[in-house]
Structure formats: C-alpha cells, structure tokens
Design a protein around this nucleic acid. Structure first.
Lengths: 148, 148
DNA sequence: TATTCTGTAACAAGAAGGGTAACAAAAGCA
DNA sequence: TGCTTTTGTTACCCTTCTTGTTACAGAATA
C-alpha cells in the first residue's frame, strides 16, 4: 500500500476548508485538526496550491482557502497533486535480460499497472470534496445530538 | 504507492513457473532471473505456499512448482498472498476528536478506500498467470527472431 | 552418511515518510 | 518605517519498511 498518509491528510484538509466556507484557515489550525505539525500541512498545501486546488495568503490575517467550489474538486485531483507515483511498483533491480521471462515481464506488468491505475482513477474521479462534506454531515449531526 | 516490489516479484516468479511447466525450480535459478538473492525469493515463495499457490520440496532434486494450473491463479490471489495491506493508508496519528471533521473523516475515508480496493481487486481478479504467460509469448518470439 | 535443498532467524544497509527547528519573504498594521 | 503574523522552503533527525546477506536447522534423496 501507499506507505504515506499524504492523500488522507490532503483530503482531510480540503474537507476542512469546504467546511469553513470562504474563511482562510491557518496551517496552525489545520494541523490541530489533523493532529500533526504545521510544516507538514504547509508542505501538502503547497503541492495543492501548485495544482490550483487552494490559494494561500501570507501575512497576518492570511491563511489558505479552496480555489474552487467543493463540487469542482475531485479526489482524483487531490491524488494526482500529492501522490506522484501510482499504486504499485515494479522490480527494484531490473530483471535478468538473458531470461525470456525476465526480459519482458516488466513490459507485461506495466500494462497491468496501467489497468489498475485507470480503475483507481475512475473511482476517485467520481467523488468530490462536496460529496465527502455531505457524507460527514450525518455523523456530525449525530455527534451533536449525543452531546445534548 | 506500494514501496515494496513483492507483488511484482511474486508475479514474475509464478510466471516463470508456468513457463517451466511441471519442472520444480530452485530458489537459486529463480533468483537469477529476478536478479536478487535466493533468500528473498524463498521468503516470497513461502508466503505463496501458505496461500496454496505453490508447493515446495526440500532435498536434492527439490524446488518449487505451481500448486494449480496457471489459469487457476489470479493476480488477486497473488496480491492477497504477498501484500497484506490495501492500496492506501489513512492518517498515521488519529485526527483530533474534538473537531467535527477530524472525528469523522476516518470513517468517510475508510468507505472511499473500500471502493478503491474493490476496484483494484476486480481488475486483478480478471487476470491469470496463464494470461501473462500468453502476453509474454509474442515478446519472446520477437526476441528469438531477432537473435537469428 | 553425505549432499542438496527449503524454511527461518538475525542483522546491516538503504530509502521514504514524518516531526521539528530555523529563516527569508510577503502582507497587514501601528 | 518598523513590528507582527503567516506562508514557503530548507535542513536534519528519527522511525519504519524493504531488501540483501550470512548462517544454520531440518527434510529429502542418492
């Protein structure tokens, strides 16, 4: 599996921003919700900004907010922004080129990887940040009720 | 992405065994094709054996061969045998439970992960070792021709 | 019994991710 | 202008995961 949690954190952050509407959030506030260090958040925010998913503002009263509407940001956008590599890796060392299997297995496996990645992308492309915010809503309502 | 190459190596190994029909292969021979150490191969072979995909035999004239026909071994079988975890990870540290987003994001993300993993499994389940061996065939034939 | 394998443990080396501190640059404010 | 706040970015350490390697017990065969 992906050993990194960047995708999960990025989705968390953007959902948070959809939640807070147009008010810019500081990396400090976001880090508190994600339970990590502000620099970790800024690193991810920076990648998201390069992909045009968020806009940041330095200085006091600064912070970061969504660059588009929540229904215009898909999980595929986010995945491409923060996880450069696909889902699987091939061989670390190239196989033996003198073996009929070894010399061609990478090509064949590459095709399989392509199919897998397409399937993943297809799922992620159908889900937007707005969807996640809506899925979150009932949970939050329940939590609110429980508090009373 | 998966930082490990176990899946790629496992597929390579099983394709090699499909290629060599019923003749048992030694970890030494396999390692040569994969271009790695025999112990690395034996480790993976051991996991595959536990899942009933291969059978091994100790002693001289020993080795490992497929436990089923190549068309009865899917990439999903292999993936489940050697990559215990799914495709994505969630947060490393649990998010802040005092935040309405933080307290529920893992549940929502877990659902998404489920959808993604299902899609991956569906692709892998449709491809067998026999398919890969057949896809390999034309490449090998071309290579043979080029040699003359 | 000697040989040839697998199964498995132990350990070193390397890579990747994440936490942390530090600092320049930008933006707002007195 | 000078101070404060916040982002953007770098550098470094620590932990975890994977792989390479050596070593050795146990099983199978001649």
């Amino acid at each position: 599996m992906s050993t990194s949690s960047r995708f999960a954190v990025a989705v968390h952050v953007l959902t948070l921003m959809a939640w807070s509407k147009d008010e810019p959030l500081k990396s400090e506030q976001v880090a508190e919700s994600v339970n990590t260090n502000p620099v970790v958040i800024r690193r991810i925010l920076c990648e998201l900004a390069h992909f045009g998913l968020v806009v940041s503002q330095t200085g006091s009263m600064g912070g970061t907010k969504l660059a588009r509407q929540p229904n215009e940001i898909t999980l595929l956008d986010i995945h491409q922004a923060v996880e450069s590599r696909g889902v699987f890796s091939l061989h670390r060392q190239p196989p033996n080129r003198d073996c009929p299997v070894g010399v061609n297995i990478e090509t064949v496996l590459g095709d399989v990887l392509g199919e897998v990645n397409s399937a993943v992308d297809h799922v992620l492309a159908k889900i937007t940040i707005e969807d996640l915010a809506l899925r979150l809503q009932p949970c939050v309502s329940t939590a609110e009720k429980a508090r009373h």
